[in-house]
Structure formats: C-alpha cells, structure tokens
Design a protein around this nucleic acid. Structure first.
Lengths: 343, 343
DNA sequence: GTACATTGCTAATGCGGATTACTAATCCAG
DNA sequence: CTGGATTAGTAATCCGCATTAGCAATGTAC
C-alpha cells in the first residue's frame, strides 16, 4: 500500500520504476497494464507487474501517453459565459457526459465575451492538441467565430455562423413556439397573448413563427394586437401582461418569451385580482429552475435542450474527427415541454 | 501565410520541421521561440526562424512541452454541480482568471454528485499531472473528500473536511448574517423577522449567529418567535413570512435565508396588501440575478463570494505547490452586500 | 536428431521539445 | 603570432510511454 507520505515533490514513479520493481522490462509493463493483444505473458508475470504497480502507486502519465499515441483525447469547449449562466451549465454536463463515454476529457474555457481571451483560449486549446472544438454561446444568435482552419474540427453550439459555413446545433425555436402555443390551444384557449422579446434575435423570430403556425393549424386568425414585446426582463413581462389583460376582449392565456417575463406577468395578473391558471393560463420558456419551479403556481414552460446540444456537439466532433471537410450541418434540437400548474 | 487548406489530418509541424525550413538545428529553434537567456543568436537568424514558424504555422505542443518540463501548468477543479448551478459558475470564472494570470489552465470536472464519477474524474486529473486540485461544492457544507495524499495539494471550496485536515475556503456566513441584519438595524428596524433554512447546514447556523450578534450589538433582545424556518424554497418563504406578518406585533423587516425564500416572502407581503419597503423591508441572500434583480421592487441581498473563493483557491494552490505539508488553513471570505430597493 | 513453431520477454526507436555540454570559427589583447 | 574569450551554433540526452522487430529458450513433429 503506497507508503508515500504526503510529502509533495517526490518524483512520481514511471513505468521503468515499475519494471525494475517487478524484474521485467518497461515494455512488458506497458503490455501488461494496457492488456496489449498478441502478447504471450503468463499470469504469474502479470501478477508481479500489477503488484509492483500497486506498491509504487504508479499511474499512467497522460501527457506522455498522448505524445506517444499522437492523440490527446481531449475536446475543447470555449464559450462566452456559459459557465456563468445557470441553465446553460447543462451544456457542459451534456458535453462532458458524451465525452467521457468515449474516454475523452473536456477542456472548458470561459471567455467572458472578451475577444482577446477568446483568442488566447483558442490558442491554448490548440496547443493542447484538442481533437475538436465546441464554440458555445449563452443565447441563440449569430456569431463570427474564429475559423481554426486545417487544424481541428469545430462546431458551433447555440449559435450559427453568418454564412453557415460551420456546423452548428441550436434549439428549435419554431417548434418551441409552436408546441407552447399548441398546448394552450389544445386546452381550449383561443385568445392567446404573446409576450415576446423585442430584439431581432433567433429566439424572438422563431418563437413568433411557431406561435403563428400553431394558431393557423387550429384555424385561429393571427391578431397582431395580442403580441406585445420588450427586452426580456420581468418588468416588461409585467407591462405587457398588464396591457394584454386590460384589452376589451382580454386573452385567456399568455405565452411568455421566457420565465423572467412570465414572472412579471404573474405579478400583473395577480395584481388584477385574477388567478392562474383559472382566469388566465401562462406558459414560459427556459425552465429556469429558480423561477419556474418556485413561482406560485409552479410555471409550465419550455426547456432549452442544453444538455442535448452539448451531447450532440461532442458526438458530431467525434464522428467527424478526421473528415477532411465535413459538411456544415445545421442541426436543430426540439425544446421539450415542462408541465407544471400554470396552464 | 499558412497555406494549409482545411484538410484535417495533415501532421502538424514540429520544431524539427521549422528547423529544417530555417536551416538551423532544432535546438536553435527552441532557443529562439522561447527567447532563452544566455544564448547568442543574431537577429538575422532569429528572423529566419520566426518566418519559418509563420510559414509552417507551427505552434508549440503543450504535451511535449509539459513532459519535458515536468510540469503540466494545469489545475484541476472538481465539483459536484458547480457548472450547473448558476451563481456558482462564478467560482469557475474566478479560478480561471487567477489560473490564467499565472499561465495555468483549469481542468473542470463535474461529478453530478456521483461518487464513481468523482473517483474517475480525480484519477483523470492526476493522470494529467495537475499541479493542484480544487474540490468545490454547490453549497457550504461538510464533506468527506478524497485525500489524494502525497500527490498534489488539494483545497476545498465552499465546503470543509470533517476533521478540518484539509485547507478550505468558504463564505463567512456569520458576517453575512450580521451585515444583513445590521443594515436593517441601521435603517431603524427593531423587530426583524428571520426566515431561515431548517437543515443543519453551515449557512443556517452561521447566519443565525450573525443575526444574533447584530441584534446584540444594537441592544435588541433576541426573540425566538421572530425566527421561522423551512427548507429554503419560495413556498416556505411565503409561509414563514405570512406567519411573521400576522403576528400581533409584526416585524417591520424580514431577513430571508436566500432569494428564493425572499421571493415567497414578497408574495406573502403583497398578498397582505403591504408594500415593500415601506411597510416591510426585505433582504435576501445569494444574489441570484434572475430573482433578485427581477423582483418588484428589486431585492437587496447578500452575495456569496464565489468569484473570490475561486481566486483564493487557485492562489493558495500556487503558493503551496511544493510545500511538503501545508497547514490546512480554513479561510472565510466576507459576503458583500448588494443594495437594491427592498430595504 | 533436426527443423520449426511457440512462449516469454527485451532492445531500440519515436513522439515534440528543453537543456546541457561541446565545437568551430572569429575576435582581441599582448 | 598565440592564447583566451566571444560568437554562433549543434549533437546528444532526457521526459514517460507505445510499439516494432527480434532473440533465446523450450516444445513438437517427423
């Protein structure tokens, strides 16, 4: 049992040390610990090697291994604020899970939206010989990402290249908007207010489109007056909801761009003395645990497929690890519905 | 200008390639690119080397470099759900910033609270020759962390070892509770309700202690009836606040264990027809952006020093990188007050 | 008894880069 | 003109591991 006290700087044992201890060559140790095929090493010798390994507390040196094998078994994940923003942390989880399943390690870098940090980070990843790079962003939008041409494959996550020249995976905003609206329609609602984001971003456009598609499929005419917008924060959700609920023919359901706006909408609705979901049903987007699960009543909402995007990105990279020039797939993943009690 | 199209698998150039292109030896290339001291290489030669580097698009191979230098320049950060929980993502930011400032890279691993994953992750980090390990958790509590003895220094973050045998950095809960309560006291409040967590965790105990200290320093007697508790979710915040606000001699201020409970308290207070902060002041804890900044009115709250803890941990590791046996410091970092409009 | 296969194991080399020790050529002082 | 210093480099080795080629000893067949 490794009798090395906690004195730090003692040199770690190498295969040579193990070999010496076991009375064999380093080659033999390598064969044994890697269970190399096409070798004829009797059990007795293997046992000697393994006990030497135990005794010295030997552990493979990943750097030496990678150098020799010419593969690092690492994938880089570089993002603007992903590690910071809560719900996006699942991207890391998904990516890590997928990577581990293939015996790869994830190298995460946060750029804090700083171009220089981004560049330096990319350089670090490349120096560390990553086998692929995931370029992820906080929210679904267009980006002008670096093109580390001819080096390693790259895939965009929750964003897309202006010219679609790089593969990317994003949430299916249209489906999300459609699914949310359809739920409301199926529950019998016909006047459905939409509290939307105002910025010209993919989510705003896509969800509105989905909203329209759903209405159309149920034969409900689109009424522009039922769509209000503002920057997606609670205060605007409050304002928009208040406006909508004071309309002469007020909606019986509200589809909010995100949970923060839904939170504001709750305030407005409650203030008007109305109850959720009886007087008005509300559905949000994002499934921010701290909000959606805690609101009273708990908020039914759409979830962004962060975990799945992380997984997909890693799989894509692994599948195209040595494709000379993979076609730049633009993949969209469906947003699942999270039912709680607000509809 | 690197004329290597995007065909992936072309072997990357090595120093030898650069040396050949520049008509010098690999040693010279190494000296030039590393700007080695005590060498006498004329500018003309240096230029030749650098342009060969440019031309071939050479980039140092971090693994080879580490192997040779016998130091990986990496620090491992292993945590339960840190990357997932939003406000804790700042730990990663702080740690990364500190690491980068010292030219180190952070290796992040998420265990999802799975012991096996934790063990495998730790092993991966060790194999990759990390120079130190940060063991972080989602919330401040006691843990039985692995003791990778005699290998690399380890530091606990937002948690502590049962026997305090490992260095750790945690939020100063007592100061947090004290500061929050003092703010209320300074504003003239004398009957201050405390909506606390019920579990026997460090935060619950520490903040209560801070609450008591603050009251004492203002000569206000502690009234156990003003302290209510429950699992720290909005529903319990609502319940506790309702109970407190219906007391005969109701409090004029509420100190909530966290922002979620404060969110529930807002509901209760509003439902009773009272206004914040006029009828009752409320202060939370955690500074969850999505809640605190979005509540109406915006919530004054205490922030957990995640960023600072991440920084501190890295600095600690770097400072004690080769101490044979560093004393296990138990460091507490103050929680800053974030003033908004609820007090 | 000889040819051949099998068993058990090792020497040598390469991966990309850092570094030490050393050489060859030039310069300068005396 | 000579000896020592300076200039401009290079060859060789090491880091820890993977892998190829091959060797010696034993077994097996005829």
């Amino acid at each position: 049992m490794a009798e090395q006290s906690r004195s730090s700087k003692r040199k770690l044992p190498s295969m040579y040390d193990v070999a010496r201890a076991a009375g064999v060559s380093q080659t033999t140790v390598s064969f044994v610990v890697n269970n190399a095929p096409n070798t004829t090493i009797p059990q007795e010798t293997r046992d000697r090697v393994w006990s030497a390994v135990e005794e010295l507390g030997w552990r493979p040196n990943a750097m030496a291994r990678s150098l020799s094998l010419q593969r690092s078994n690492t994938i880089g994940l570089i993002s603007d604020e992903i590690a910071t923003s809560s719900h996006a942390g699942r991207i890391i989880q998904g990516a890590q899970a997928a990577a581990w399943a293939h015996n790869k390690m994830l190298l995460v870098i946060n750029t804090d939206n700083n171009r220089e940090v981004e560049h330096a980070g990319l350089e670090m990843l490349l120096e560390r010989q990553v086998e692929g790079i995931i370029y992820a962003t906080m929210y679904h939008h267009e980006v002008a990402p670096p093109h580390p041409r001819g080096q390693v494959p790259i895939v965009l996550l929750d964003c897309y290249a202006t010219d679609h020249s790089l593969p990317s995976v994003v949430p299916d905003e249209v489906q999300g908007g459609r699914t949310a609206t359809e739920l409301l329609l199926r529950k019998g609602h016909r006047r459905i207010g939409f509290v939307n984001e105002i910025g010209p971003i993919a989510a705003m456009v896509g969800r509105l489109e989905g909203y329209k598609q759903a209405l159309a499929s149920f034969g409900v005419p689109f009424d522009a007056n039922l769509v209000r917008s503002g920057a997606s924060i609670a205060a605007n959700g409050y304002r928009c909801a208040l406006e909508l609920m004071q309309l002469p023919d007020r909606p019986t359901a509200l589809f909010c761009f995100n949970d923060s706006m839904a939170m504001g909408a709750y305030d407005a609705v409650k203030q008007l003395g109305l109850t959720i979901p009886n007087d008005v049903a509300i559905i949000g987007f994002d499934n921010l645990e701290v909000i959606a699960a805690q609101l009273q009543p708990p908020l039914t909402t759409m979830e962004l497929p962060h975990y799945e995007m992380g997984q997909w990105a890693v799989h894509y990279l692994l599948d195209h690890a040595d494709d000379a020039q993979p076609e730049p797939v633009q993949h969209a993943i469906a947003c699942p519905l999270i039912e709680r009690n607000s509809v």
